[in-house]
């Protein structure tokens, strides 16, 4: 049995998209097996929603006013759990080194992780929304609100994945990520809460566009910044 193949030339480099999807596939396959990340995010989210439900005695109008805030607090903290775990998996067995040794554009690794994290976050959101709707007797399946949640989740994951890659290399990674990330993601949370509230109240689009534009602008800027910075963040 020989391991060295006849051809001496190394294989041509893998494309950006193929390497990105390889990372997404790996994250999804590992999570399907362990269900560590999704279950932690989901249980945490449901507990937060339940605690708010039983601790706040609200009438119908007040409920509509606090809904967006409660939802985004839930998503933000559950998302932090997910981001921490997603990068800890890479660091625990030093798997990040294995990834960085591969001859691929490191931005592809970053975007692979972003897509994986976004899928996990959206999955949790998809489960939490109907439960919240039932508990609070509020219709959350408003197209505008769903678009806002998607934009907010993208902004949260794009900045969070970059900062998680940074914080995971420290001893205090579990506490460092929220401390680093929450101030950075504040514009996303404020815009998302505002746009979500307006959509739930049926306000005109003139009022909502400002918040949506801020979300879109944040996503574009942070995606570009992360594309340029990820290599430096993970380089020793």
């Amino acid at each position: 049995m020989t391991v060295k193949s006849a051809a001496k030339r190394p294989a041509p480099p893998v494309s950006f998209l193929s390497s990105m999807w390889a990372v997404v596939w790996k994250d999804l396959a590992a999570e399907l097996r362990s269900r560590e990340l999704i279950s932690a995010m989901l249980v945490f989210s449901l507990l937060v929603v339940l605690i708010f439900n039983f601790s706040l005695e609200l009438n119908a109008r007040e409920r509509q006013e606090v809904t967006a805030g409660v939802l985004w607090v839930t998503f933000v903290f559950a998302g932090t759990l997910g981001l921490n775990r997603s990068m800890a998996i890479e660091k625990d067995g030093n798997c990040l080194d294995g990834l960085l040794l591969a001859p691929v554009d490191r931005a592809a690794i970053y975007f692979g992780k972003v897509i994986g994290n976004l899928i996990f976050m959206l999955l949790v959101i998809l489960i939490v929304l109907p439960i919240y709707s039932i508990l609070y007797n509020t219709n959350l399946f408003v197209p505008g609100l769903l678009v806002t949640i998607l934009l907010g989740a993208i902004g949260y994951v794009v900045s969070g994945t970059l900062l998680a890659a940074m914080s995971v290399q420290t001893r205090t990674r579990d506490i460092l990520l929220p401390i680093l990330h929450l101030p950075v993601v504040l514009p996303v949370v404020i815009s998302a809460v505002r746009a979500s509230t307006y959509f739930l109240q049926g306000q005109p689009m003139d009022l909502i566009w400002g918040s949506l534009n801020l979300l879109i602008g944040y996503n574009v800027i942070f995606t570009a910044a992360a594309y340029m910075l990820f290599d430096y963040v993970v380089q020793e």
Binding site: K26, G93, C95, D97, G98
Partner: peptide, 14 residues
């Protein structure tokens, strides 16, 4: 280049 360290750099859930 192939690299082998004392840590296997493998994903335990795969």
């Amino acid at each position: 280049l192939g690299v082998l360290s004392h840590q296997p750099l493998l994903y335990p859930d795969l």
